[in-house]
Design a protein around this nucleic acid. Structure first.
Lengths: 119, 119
DNA sequence: CTTCTATATTGACGTCTCTCGATCCAAGGC
DNA sequence: GCCTTGGATCGAGAGACGTCAATATAGAAG
């Protein structure tokens, strides 16, 4: 629903120029999705997985929360454009959408830090 | 109040290993502070400023919001450890705390992307 | 000391968010 | 067909959040 892949690239960087309203609104949606410890852990479980895919049945018991709550957080992460999922038989598998996290990281990186790395 | 400088460094990276609860809670506070378009714009105004300092009197009229609301958002950004301020006469000046954004960016950067850059 | 200006704080209101139990849907096995 | 299992959706309640008007505070100027 949120095309961070396109909209984030329009924003040259947090510290390079004052953000316009539209860009800030789009980016805030993604950061808001990251602004919850449960969602951060879910995303980390998914993004750090070797094979790239994690079954819901594996994530739900890792938390002290009800199954609908985990499903709700996964939905928010998906709406933020951070992950996607596919049903395979009885189970549903989630994976991290590539590039989105790196684009966010690039947006946060200050120009000085960039020049230091590339120098 | 939040020592992202210390606590974020304890977290090796979102995509390198599943985040533990404590680390996720600390990081979520910072991302939550970034999860509002007004705060993103405020932080961008501050971080992109050449001299490094921005007066509140310069930020308030840039928004269609009341003065207390802007003050409130600046307070949240400060509590998240992203900015700091100092009173100088009648005016108050804000600046971005260095390194925090870069640490966040490093946390979001996937291991693959890191190896690509350093290769 | 009084007054004015620039910010911060307080209190209140409506809205959004997180969580749960209950229910529904999709797929497999009998 | 029916039943079981894995997930998603619905509806509700408690709490957090964003916003404002009103007030308080700090400093400068008279």
């Amino acid at each position: 629903m949120i095309a961070i892949g396109q909209d984030a690239s329009c924003c040259p960087g947090l510290a390079s120029a004052p953000l316009d309203d539209e860009c800030a609104t789009e980016l805030a949606k993604v950061f808001k999705a990251l602004g919850d410890p449960v969602r951060l852990r879910l995303l980390s479980m998914i993004a750090s997985r070797e094979g790239g895919e994690v079954c819901v049945c594996e994530m739900t018991p890792a938390f002290d929360l009800s199954q609908p709550t985990i499903s709700h957080h996964l939905k928010l992460l998906r709406q933020a454009g951070l992950i996607d999922c596919e049903r395979r038989g009885t189970w549903v598998y989630y994976w991290a959408l590539p590039g989105v996290l790196d684009k966010l990281a690039a947006f946060l990186t200050t120009p000085q830090a960039v020049t230091e790395v590339t120098a």
